[in-house]
């Protein structure tokens, strides 16, 4: 058990090392020397390159560049171009803002996707199954920005509820209940929009997994024992069907930043995605590169945690490796 965890941890550390190399070397895509600038490329001017060379020590040998970049990042002395604030603290602040959005979104996704998927699988080919199938595809295919705008119009026009930003501006002194209410309204819509595609995709997976499990021999055994349907499906099948989703938990974390770029920019939500979008618009390279690195680290952490959970949940693994 310890050796399993230890090996997994070491593996993750090695992966982290490579992640750090890759997220740093992305900067190499930019022209390295002012003389290399393509005059047609509006993204880089001579001054830009100069600044880039300074910030990332592009004059030093490669390994020194790498070392200095991460030294600066972790000592919190890597500064943003835009406002000269330390990058790491900026990201942390935005991370805290993104967190509620992410938590509510994930909560909604997992709470809705599982019942939907399981139900659809157990009533295969029924009206319920067909309609959830269609709506899953509908929501998977619906561009989030399109949906976001449609729903903003809808909310503002019909309910007259402001939804842009963290909270409504200029109403800080109107009382605690109003504040909470306002906050919730601002939180629900973006997290729901973020969750829609997730619910659709996850419920498809759950359905597929469940369908596969109920075809297994041990489900036939459970039926042959004369167990009631509920026990067959919700005890014997469900437990097996859910196992793989423990490992999926780690993989939903990229949504924390990647999936939220569009939603956060539309709703002017000051989270990590928005930070990334602003940084890209302002060509704030220290922020962009660090954000990629931090996001990848978060995912890595997520997969580690889910590996541990998986080990705890599946008797086949934990015992073999003890």
């Amino acid at each position: 058990m310890i050796s399993f965890l230890g090996r997994n941890f070491v593996e993750k550390l090695i992966t982290l090392f490579f992640i750090s190399i890759i997220s740093f070397s992305v900067v190499m895509l930019a022209p390295g020397d002012p003389s290399e600038i393509d005059p047609m490329n509006p993204k880089f001017t001579k001054e830009d390159i100069q600044r880039l060379r300074e910030a990332f020590d592009l004059d030093k040998p490669l390994y020194m560049q790498y070392y200095l970049y991460y030294k600066k990042l972790f000592t919190n002395t890597l500064l943003s171009y835009k406002d000269n604030q330390p990058v790491l603290s900026k990201i942390y602040e935005r991370f805290l803002n993104s967190l509620p959005l992410f938590i509510v979104g994930t909560f909604l996704t997992w709470c809705l996707a599982f019942p939907l998927g399981i139900h659809a699988a157990l009533r295969r080919q029924s009206f319920f199954d067909r309609s959830t199938t269609f709506f899953s595809y509908f929501f998977i295919s619906l561009p989030s920005f399109f949906l976001a705008y449609l729903s903003i119009i809808f909310m503002v026009k019909f309910f007259n509820v402001p939804v842009i930003g963290l909270a409504t501006f200029g109403r800080e002194s109107v009382g605690i209940w109003y504040m909470i209410n306002d906050r919730i309204w601002h939180l629900v819509l973006p997290s729901m929009l973020g969750a829609f595609a997730g619910i659709a995709i996850l419920s498809r997976y759950v359905r597929g997994q469940m369908l596969e499990v109920i075809e297994q021999d041990y489900i036939r055994t459970a039926k042959a024992k004369g167990l009631p349907d509920d026990q067959v499906y919700y005890k014997h099948a469900l437990r097996n069907a859910l196992l793989p989703f423990i490992t999926m938990f780690g993989l939903v974390i990229p949504g924390l930043i990647g999936g939220s770029v569009i939603i956060e920019s539309i709703f002017a939500w000051p989270g990590m995605g928005r930070l990334g979008y602003d940084a890209i618009l302002a060509r704030d390279y220290p922020v962009i590169l660090s954000l990629n690195f931090v996001a990848a680290c978060l995912v890595l952490l997520g997969t580690f945690v889910s590996d541990v959970f998986y080990m705890a949940a599946d008797p086949r693994i934990s015992i073999q490796d003890k």
Partner: peptide, 12 residues
């Protein structure tokens, strides 16, 4: 798979 692909694409 660790990198958030949409943001990585944006970056590049």
């Amino acid at each position: 798979l660790c990198f958030p692909s949409f943001f990585l694409i944006l970056t590049i």
